[in-house]
Design a protein around this nucleic acid. Structure first.
Lengths: 146, 146
DNA sequence: GTTGAAAGACACCATCC
DNA sequence: GGATGGTGTCTTTCAAC
């Protein structure tokens, strides 16, 4: 699927507010509502749009402890690591990466005890470096056509 | 603001699909639509809900190069670093963290040349460790009441 | 927090450019 | 590819409870 500038505009609008109606979305990108609808449907079915979701303030939701963990799997037991982390529901992301570490994860916890518990659970399989998050410096993001 | 189990249910539903109508949302959590609407409005105004947004597949959008960068600022010039990264629009997040590094950032690029350019721009102010992302292992996330 | 009613907006379709 | 107009449905919003 080839995206044009209009698709990018649509994505940027939806990224700012995914609850826009198709007609309002059309107004913002100067397109009729049937046209926007079709473009959006296309991007959904091609997987360009993965999910409509919500950004939550974890502190206000009772999970004030956030951290990013570098995990280096021992003895190349990637399967075991994969399996292990599946049971946690407080993982925002887990990426397989190049570099010293094998995986980078972001997690939320209700308190430090929970964080410790997680690390203890993982450590038999992977060594970890934990970066607790102090604050969010920047999060904006715009898509451009190259 | 004190959240109860119903609020959590609502958040989890919206996190899975932020485009649900209030009436449909009400159906799913067994609440009338006026009640859901009020709860959602509350969570919006208290900042529990930060933003309704969309998850995009960066590869399909023409930004196949993703990485997480650890940045360690030289000479404690945090202001300079902050200012520097503001001009980039391809930063998904930037956290101030504890640990060896000062900041952790996630970025998207159209190609390696752009990634190199970013690193070159940052290096006078901060040393960096770059982890290119191979794949996304896990991303689900549910909120629970403690 | 619920129900019910009224107004409005929306999505959808067919048609046409 | 995109726009327009009409129709039916769903939603929102308000009132009263």
């Amino acid at each position: 699927m080839k995206l044009d500038e209009l698709d990018m505009k649509i994505l940027n609008e939806l990224r700012e507010n995914s609850r826009l109606s198709m007609s309002e979305l059309g107004r913002r990108v100067n397109l009729s509502s049937p046209s926007v609808t079709e473009r959006v449907r296309q991007m959904e079915s091609f997987g360009v749009i993965k999910k409509y979701t919500v950004e939550v303030n974890y502190e206000k939701v009772g999970q004030p402890i956030q951290c990013i963990v570098e995990a280096t799997v021992k003895n190349g037991d990637y399967q075991g690591f994969n399996k292990l982390i599946q049971r946690f529901s407080n993982i925002e992301f887990c990426y397989r990466v190049a570099g010293n570490a094998c995986f980078l994860l972001k997690l939320q916890f209700n308190n430090f005890a929970e964080a410790e518990e997680f690390i203890n659970t993982v450590n038999p399989i992977a060594s970890t470096v934990t970066h607790f998050i102090f604050s969010e410096v920047k999060t904006n993001l715009k898509l451009d056509l190259t």
